[in-house]
Computed example of a mutant assay.
Amino acid sequence: MLERVTLEDLVRLRRARDVIDRDYALPLDVPALARVALMSSGHFSRSFRAAFGETPYNYLMTRRIERAKALLRRGDLSVTEVCFAVGCTSLGSFSSRFTELVGESPSAYRARRHEEGAAIPACVAKIYTRPLRTRDPAGAGQPVRIGEADPAVAS
């Protein structure tokens, strides 16, 4: 059963989401984000998922991977340096999550050419380069864009 999110809670959840967007490279955890939203950790996690379609941790990791993709495209930092620059503390976990969301390893992504997207405005590129889940929870074989409603659950 989906939890209903009140307008008052949504305002507080957006405040916490803004903290994730701004401070993604800092050590963030659910209790700290729940304090920002003035909620208990459990209520915050359930409400965040109901409002935004993913857990706070998944949202944080999506932001980190988006930023990592931008840093890797520049090509002047190693994969390890990018891992730590975006706030991850384990290269193995970072690489696994990056591969899961992007579909290729950070090293392969860094080595690939990226000039074709250079002329695209950043606001448009962000939409089209947002990491996708490579595993379809409904089993239909289609990747599900993170943050979008799962079509199998939407009805």
Score class of each variant (00 low, 15 high):
4 R>K: 13
8 E>S: 15
11 V>P: 02
12 R>M: 14
12 R>P: 09
13 L>I: 06
15 R>D: 15
16 A>D: 10
16 A>I: 09
17 R>L: 14
18 D>G: 12
19 V>F: 07
20 I>H: 10
20 I>S: 10
21 D>E: 15
23 D>Y: 11
28 L>Y: 11
28 L>K: 07
31 P>L: 08
32 A>K: 13
34 A>T: 06
35 R>M: 10
36 V>P: 11
39 M>A: 06
39 M>I: 04
42 G>M: 00
42 G>R: 08
45 S>A: 13
47 S>M: 02
48 F>T: 01
48 F>R: 01
49 R>S: 11
50 A>P: 02
51 A>D: 09
51 A>T: 04
53 G>S: 08
56 P>Q: 02
57 Y>F: 07
58 N>Q: 14
60 L>D: 06
63 R>D: 01
63 R>F: 01
64 R>N: 05
65 I>S: 01
68 A>L: 04
70 A>N: 01
70 A>W: 07
71 L>Y: 12
73 R>M: 15
74 R>F: 08
78 S>Y: 02
81 E>A: 14
81 E>I: 00
85 A>D: 10
89 T>S: 08
93 S>R: 11
93 S>T: 12
94 F>H: 03
94 F>W: 05
95 S>Q: 13
96 S>R: 12
98 F>C: 05
103 G>L: 03
103 G>N: 04
109 Y>F: 15
110 R>C: 02
111 A>T: 00
116 E>N: 00
118 A>V: 07
119 A>M: 05
120 I>D: 06
121 P>H: 07
124 V>E: 12
125 A>D: 11
125 A>Q: 11
127 I>N: 00
127 I>C: 02
131 P>F: 05
134 T>C: 03
146 I>Q: 12
147 G>D: 06
151 P>Y: 04
152 A>Y: 03
153 V>N: 01
155 S>H: 09
